[in-house]
Design a protein around this nucleic acid. Structure first.
Lengths: 291, 291
DNA sequence: AATTATTTTTGTCTAGGACAAATTATGCCC
DNA sequence: GGGCATAATTTGTCCTAGACAAAAATAATT
């Protein structure tokens, strides 16, 4: 019995809203689903795959009108062309291998070994950042499951929180509040940014994911933070991110700097002054020095 | 300038779909938004608050048709009735005080002191479990904000993950996979249960929150886990929890035990055999011994 | 080559209808 | 009064099809 997916399933799996799915069908003829007795849309797994690829390519600036007309093969081809451009470090290659083939308990050990060997800073920039991106991609492409992604996330969290605790806290320095925007569930980028800031001696108020804007403002004021840091993954709508950042900026006092980073901030529309975007973890130390 | 929210904002903030929001408006007259020039819905923060309360009460079996007709005051009243007046330990009292009045950085220190003093087991049962519940309630009652709750969560996470790592891992023992059901975002109960199991020498495969059922099954089989542990907070619909647990049971091999705990499992409808419910963290060691 | 204006593309919002699944109310028998 | 089948109501999700502004691409102008 072939698996069939409802429009909600597709929305959840691809992150493309049902409104958008319906209008793509109307305009481009894809994805054109079967209908059940109730004349509700009924998608195939192949259509899901195609949409996943399309979603990914959308992120790098291609237009849906073009992409919807391509078949699976053509989409794979373009995707591979894109992938060839970014080289995956050897360490990442190896970690991905462990993640896929197991043993499950080997991952933590390997992560810690790499951390010991390279030091926190290089570990973050050279291993975790590319690895986290690779894991996200592999999940999206269906090469690994949610299970593997969750496992990776937990192991990294364990390693980073341990590292964070072992860093000396030097009160008196400037303070930073760190969180993600409402709707953003991914917390690894946040944790990485937190470590980078902590390495620079910044005192951290870490809030986890999805803090309402009003509460971010309250936290920054009450905690006398000079920096508010927002982490944005690539899996969230750019426009939403932009709008929320602008709104947050307008709510924060001028004495507080607003910093945003992560792949979700890469191809962001023009940002007003007062919002500093980071394209790379490596830019953080410099920014802290300048303050 | 008063803050106004679009229907997408409301969907994101409350977790109630736009379709549902629109049809509630049509049927019950709430939430009735203003309109902008484009005749798009425009909600107030007060309406958001009301919807948040409604969403919570829906979880404990009340009907939207009734709730939508109540105003903010009445909703608060019902909420308070739901809450039983249980005695709060002195340590919890003190921690709550720190959480409310600050200093923010005092919380971690106090938590660690209590852990040192009482040992992990008593700390979990006597401090963290009641404290976590108290924090949830305080948030619900509006006595503390999301900010404070997030801060508490992160500090506890830090303490517990550190404690977890320092426990001796004894391979060869039975293994347990731990996670929450899709839709359940609260991970502290999960972490506490994890610690309890680790204290008994059980090898842990910790997956974080919201793992799809199929992936839980895959993880249990691939990882050769004899126990699958599910943590359910009180803030999720009981019926959904029950249905998902039953489905998960039917998907798991008979050799795997299914354990579920947390306040969300307390007043659960009749459960079939093969699902063990835990009303208290303290029951975990015993259950492990019996296996 | 750099701006500016125009056209096309795209996503989100709207309205109101339909229908099955879940829940509650009703009638009936023991 | 309690248990149980049946009818009525409640509720969420899906449907179509149209509208429109913001973003992006293209053309025209300086």
């Amino acid at each position: 019995m072939p698996v069939r997916l409802s429009i909600s399933d597709l929305e959840r799996e691809t992150g493309i809203s049902r409104d958008t799915l319906r209008i793509w069908e109307r305009r481009y003829g894809f994805p054109e689903p079967l209908r059940n007795q109730r004349s509700e849309r009924n998608y195939s797994v192949e259509q899901l795959e195609r949409l996943r690829l399309i979603k990914q390519l959308l992120g790098s600036g291609m237009r849906p009108g073009k992409l919807a007309r391509l078949d699976l093969q053509q989409l794979c081809q373009i995707t591979q062309q894109q992938r060839e451009t970014d080289t995956v470090p050897r360490d990442v290659e190896e970690l991905l291998q462990i993640l896929v083939t197991g043993p499950r308990y080997g991952l933590l050990a390997r992560l810690e070994a790499l951390l010991q060997q390279q030091g926190l800073r290089d570990f973050l920039i050279g291993v975790l950042a590319p690895m986290t991106h690779a894991v996200g991609e592999a999940w999206f492409a269906g090469r690994i499951g949610v299970l593997d992604e969750h496992h990776y996330t937990e192991q990294v969290r364990m390693v980073l929180l341990a590292a964070l605790r072992s860093l000396p806290q030097t009160p008196g320095n400037s303070r930073a509040l760190l969180t993600t925007l409402p709707g953003e569930q991914h917390g690894l980028g946040l944790l990485m940014a937190t470590c980078m800031l902590a390495l620079e001696g910044v005192e951290i108020l870490l809030l986890g994911v999805q803090t309402p804007l009003e509460e971010i403002v309250r936290g920054a004021i009450e905690g006398e933070c000079r920096i508010v840091g927002i982490s944005c993954s690539e899996y969230i709508n750019r426009r939403t991110v932009a709008a929320q950042l602008v709104r947050l900026r307008s709510m924060l006092p001028n004495t507080v700097s607003l910093w945003a980073g992560g792949r979700g901030t890469n191809s962001l529309p023009k940002m007003p002054v007062g919002i500093k975007l980071f394209r790379h973890l490596g830019e953080i130390p410099e920014a802290v020095q300048q303050k």
